[in-house]
């Protein structure tokens, strides 16, 4: 697959579009279909496509397994951290109303960061599971 010039050139066109689309889905999830789960999976599929066509070594220069694992933990911590932040600001766990002066604004901020945490975790979990399988040696 690595030798096939048509696939390689097409992937050069497609991968930036896939990654950009993932970001659009991530941040437009409040208004249209989409959100952290979908964006994470789409982002991961962009990186996996790159890894399939150019080899794991080159893909690991972009996102290494260590970085992916760390980011997966950070995404989950971001989610839980927003919840704990709600407690410190005087609300309940995962209560976004207190995050800003206006409850609706607080909800906006809360959902934004929650979805960001979900997106980061899902994307990096998928990428590192793929790496784990691809690097497995008999």
């Amino acid at each position: 697959m690595r030798k096939n010039p048509i696939l390689r050139e097409t992937s050069h066109l497609l991968i930036p579009a896939i990654l950009l689309f993932a970001l659009y889905v991530q941040f437009h999830g409040d208004y249209g279909p989409g959100g952290g789960f979908q964006a994470g999976v789409i982002f991961a599929s962009g990186v996996i496509l790159y890894a399939l066509l150019h080899g794991i070594k080159k893909a690991e220069k972009v996102i290494s397994l260590t970085l992916a694992k760390t980011l997966a933990a950070i995404g989950l911590l971001l989610y839980a951290g927003i919840g704990v932040l709600g407690i410190f600001l005087g609300g309940n766990f995962l209560d976004y109303n207190v995050l800003a002066h206006d409850p609706t604004h607080g909800q906006h901020w809360g959902i934004f960061f929650i979805e960001l945490g979900v997106g980061i975790t899902v994307a990096t979990v998928m990428i590192s599971i793929f790496y784990a399988f691809a690097k497995f040696k008999k």
Binding site: G35, F37, V41, V122, V125, M126, I129, A132, F133, F136, K138
Partner: peptide, 24 residues
């Protein structure tokens, strides 16, 4: 269901890892 789909792929990955180890 949205969350269940993502969880299902994660559990499938665990299953595949088990299959790979069994094959080993």
């Amino acid at each position: 269901i949205l969350t269940a789909i993502v969880v299902s792929i994660a559990t499938t990955a665990v299953g595949l890892a088990l299959v790979v180890n069994i094959n080993q």
